[in-house]
């Protein structure tokens, strides 16, 4: 499973709580729709850092980086490239 699909899988199962929903699109708005909230983002961070063996710096902990699957994937891939 590639990075984006791994993250999609986590968000779908851990945050949407409804597998019957329309599959999560790469650019669906996760913050603006309220899917990722204050606790959700910490849960997601914990998952990302463990799954991809990265540490996301404090400077990158901004809502824009969690806006959609695309931005989260880009964030993870930037950290993996370091």
């Amino acid at each position: 499973m590639n990075t984006c699909n791994t993250i999609r899988d986590f968000i779908t199962h851990e945050m949407l709580h409804d597998s019957l929903k329309t599959p999560l699109g790469d650019d669906d708005q996760l913050v603006d729709s309220g899917i990722i909230d204050s606790l959700g983002v910490m849960n997601l961070l914990s998952f990302l850092e463990e799954k991809f063996s990265i540490q996301i710096p404090d400077d990158d902990l901004i809502p824009e980086n969690f806006a959609s699957l695309s931005t989260i994937t880009a964030l993870v891939e930037r950290q993996m490239a370091r």
Binding site: S38, L39, V41, M42, D58, L61, I62, P63, E64
Partner: peptide, 16 residues
């Protein structure tokens, strides 16, 4: 402190 709009994530981290 931090960036604009970062307060919730910042607080969520600090509260740990």
């Amino acid at each position: 402190v931090g960036r604009e709009g970062q307060g919730v994530i910042l607080f969520s981290e600090v509260v740990e």
